[in-house]
Structures are given as C-alpha cells and as structure tokens.
Design a protein around this nucleic acid. Structure first.
Lengths: 228, 228
DNA sequence: CTAATCATTTAGGCTAGCCTAAAATAGTGA
DNA sequence: TCACTATTTTAGGCTAGCCTAAATGATTAG
C-alpha cells in the first residue's frame, strides 16, 4: 500500500507561502531559506519545513525543494504567486481609487481579501479601473498571463551620492512609514532631492514640503529612478 | 484543575452558524433544531451539536442552548448575525451597483467576502452607495445598530386567490431561479399578475414578458406585497 | 581536519472543525 | 403505560496547520 494519499492544502496558507517565496527570491528567483520564510510569515522554521514538503510533493508541485538547500517556485507555483500578486495590487488600486481608502490602509485590507476573490471579481474591478498597470504604491500589476514589466528602478538605500530622483515605488508593508512619506509629499512620481549623511538620508519633495530625515534602515522601502 | 480553558472559535464558521440560526428562526426568533441547521449548513447533525456547545459555553455566549430543545441567538449572537447580514447585503448591493455583476452571481461572491471585511470597508461601501436600505434582491439591509425595518410582505406561496401584486423580494440562495425570474422581468418592484392552479403558479410581469409557470416548491423564494 | 555554531529537519503534540457509529432521549400510537 | 421511531448527543477519529524540543546536517574558525 503505497503512501500516495491525497493531501489537501489550504489555499490561503499556500498563497501566503508562495507570495513570500516570490518576494524573497527577488527578480532573479533565487532559492529562499526556511528561516527567511519563517521570519517573513511569522511562523516557526519547523512549520515552514513541514509546509514546503507538502507543497513539493503535491500532485502538481508548487515548489522545487531540496532538503537543506532552500526552495524555489515551480512554474505552476510562480503562476499562482503572480496571480495572487495581481489580485493584491488590483484590490489595493481599487480600494484607493474607488473606495477612497487612505493609502496606508489598503495593504492590510487587500491582504485579507486577495485569497477569496474569484477571476470574475478580478475581471470586473480591472475593467472598472481601466486595466491599470501600476498600483497606488507604484508597483507593477502583473497581467492576466502573469507577465510583468521589469522594474527600471533602484532602492533608495543604494544611492551613492546626493542628487535628484523620481520616486518609483514605495513598499506597502509598513503603514506608518507610508503615512509619514505621504505627509512629506513623497509619493510615486514625486521629484525627490536626496542628501546623504552617515546614518540617514534627507529627502525633500517639491517645494512646500518639509525635509524628511529617514533612517537608513527604512530606506529599502523606497525605490527611485533617475529624472530624465 | 477546573476545565475553564479558553476555546478559540473560528469566526467564519461561527458566522455561518449564526446566520443560519437567524434565518431559520424567522422573524419570531423561534428556537432552531440541530437537524434543520445541519441541513442548511450541509454538515452532520453531530457537528452541529458540537458547535452549539462551543457557542453556548464561550465567554460571552452567542447562543442559548438547551440539550434536545434547539437553540436561539443570544443578544450578542443576534448582534453579530445582523452585522454579518448587513455585510452580506451591502456587498451584494455593491457588486451589483458598482461592479455590474449579474444579479444571480452576487450571492455566492458576497458569501465568500462577508467574513473578511472590516468595519472600515463596510463604512466605505455604504458611503459610496449612499447608505442603501434595500439590497438588489429587495431585502432590507440592517442598520449599523442592527435595527431593521419589518417586512410588510408575504411569501408568494401563501397567495390565496388570483390577483395582482408587487414583487417585494426574491431569495438570493437559488441562482438559477433568480436568472429565470429576471428573464421574465420578475424583479423587486415589478407588478405581477398571479394565477393559481393546483400544482403551479402562473406569473406575468409587465406586458412584453412571457408568462412564467412556477412550481409551488419554488414559490417560497418570492415575497410579494399588495399593490397600492 | 575537527569542533563549535548555526540552520534545518524530525518527532511528537495541540486545536478547530468536520466525520461516522453507537448511545441516549423525546415523542407518539396502541 | 410501554414500546417503537425519530431526533439528538456522546464517543472516538481524521486532517490541516501550527507549535516546541531534540536530532541531524552544513559551515566555518582555529
């Protein structure tokens, strides 16, 4: 009696694992460690191992996983991860544009809703919004087929010398930071003058807005591109 | 060591039980049997008993439950049930009005979403919709404080003699029926001529629409009021 | 090249919510 | 009233997803 029993996998939990692997793997889709996943998802490393084993041994596996060597998305896993990301960003856009949510609140609400909507819902809000390509944080929204244009931007933390840039995007995971940045008019598309000092960056957007002193630790959340 | 351990209750499941008790108890809030609940929720009677015991022994109980005598909502349970009902009906209205969903699809989608939205979301869509009092099926939407105006209508199945009526509301639980009714212009507010025969009702709405032969078994889904 | 450290996996447990089968209770007709 | 039937509850099991503690594997400093 071989142990090919069917294992049921809770979609919500799986989605969260896949999204985390997508995000942590970065654009080069590097393999991701259990610990990194555990930290991001707020669960114990042992729980991650457990789930990865399930994901890898499903009928059509969502991940490629070798013991002790981290995990990568399979093509199927990547497809699903991008689908969830598309849901997430469309919902964020929708909450912001149609329901007038403040920018710093859309992430948490979208996080909750993204698992429970069907294609039809997605289709309708995409249509209602005119099939947007960018969400209110400046992030690309994957197309229906999973294609997503490459980001032509760099994290603010990599800035070498003082200068002027355009804000490309801002991570949605830290609501407080998002609110602070908004209060200083630092939003996607804004022009930004950056002055570097040992422990912080000083940011100035537009003219009327006060300069913002940003700890280097927070500067990874903002991506910029050159003004031209 | 007393057994006063804290029991965690999954909100989604609880919500479904509370909604079912509210619906089956009717406007007089009669006590509801395990079997009726089991049937409506699609679970085994034993599962219902189990859950009712949990609901009744929670810190602030959602139901009043006596073995073998059915179950009623506690004030707290009623409050929550009406809150979920409000969510459900607001979401339905929203899907129909803003996202242009076909009427027969809004129920299932709302069913999925209603558990996962926060007050803030509810608030926004209520505002966006102009604080509607009636959903697209003709059902009252409970107010924020749980108050809901009494239905001044009767089930179509109670019609004694032929006559003309106004469609008050239509149950959203049978998508197929909803679609059929729509095709015959039988929607909330429509004028309806009803002809009774032993096994069916014949319904005619407006002038251009064909008469609909409706089995008595389906006639509980439609509520009517008198034309005046 | 070995020992210490760090990362990861295994083993064993827990809870929620469902199930089935068996036991108990309530209701009813003779 | 008593037995029969239908309803409801109890008892015992299962799975998913989490946990902790212990064991194992990988890596790195001396």
């Amino acid at each position: 009696m071989p142990s090919n029993r069917q294992v049921n996998i809770n979609t919500e939990s799986v989605d969260n694992y896949l999204k985390a692997i997508l995000a942590l793997g970065g654009p080069e889709e590097q393999s991701v460690s259990s610990t990194a996943l555990a930290q991001r998802l707020g669960v114990a490393p042992a729980s991650v191992t457990n789930m990865l084993q399930k994901l890898a041994s499903a009928r059509s596996p969502f991940v490629e996983y070798e013991k002790h060597r981290g995990v990568r998305l399979s093509p199927e896993g990547k497809r699903r991860a991008l689908e969830v990301l598309r849901h997430h960003r469309l919902i964020e856009t929708f909450l912001y544009e149609i329901l007038d949510f403040p920018i710093e609140e859309v992430h948490d609400e979208a996080e909750r809703l993204e698992h429970f909507i069907l294609e039809r819902f997605e289709e309708r809000i995409a249509a209602k919004l005119g099939h947007p390509k960018i969400d209110p944080h400046g992030h690309c929204i994957p197309a229906l087929d999973g294609r997503m244009s490459k980001q032509d931007s760099a994290p603010l933390i990599d800035v070498e010398k003082d200068g002027e840039f355009v804000v490309d995007s801002i991570s949605d995971r830290d609501a407080k930071l998002l609110k602070t940045l908004k209060a200083h008019s630092i939003t996607p598309g804004a022009h930004l003058r950056v002055t570097k000092s040992p422990h912080e960056l000083v940011l100035r957007a537009g003219k009327g807005s006060k300069p913002l002193h940003l700890a280097l630790s927070a500067a990874g959340a903002v991506r910029i591109r050159s003004t031209n």
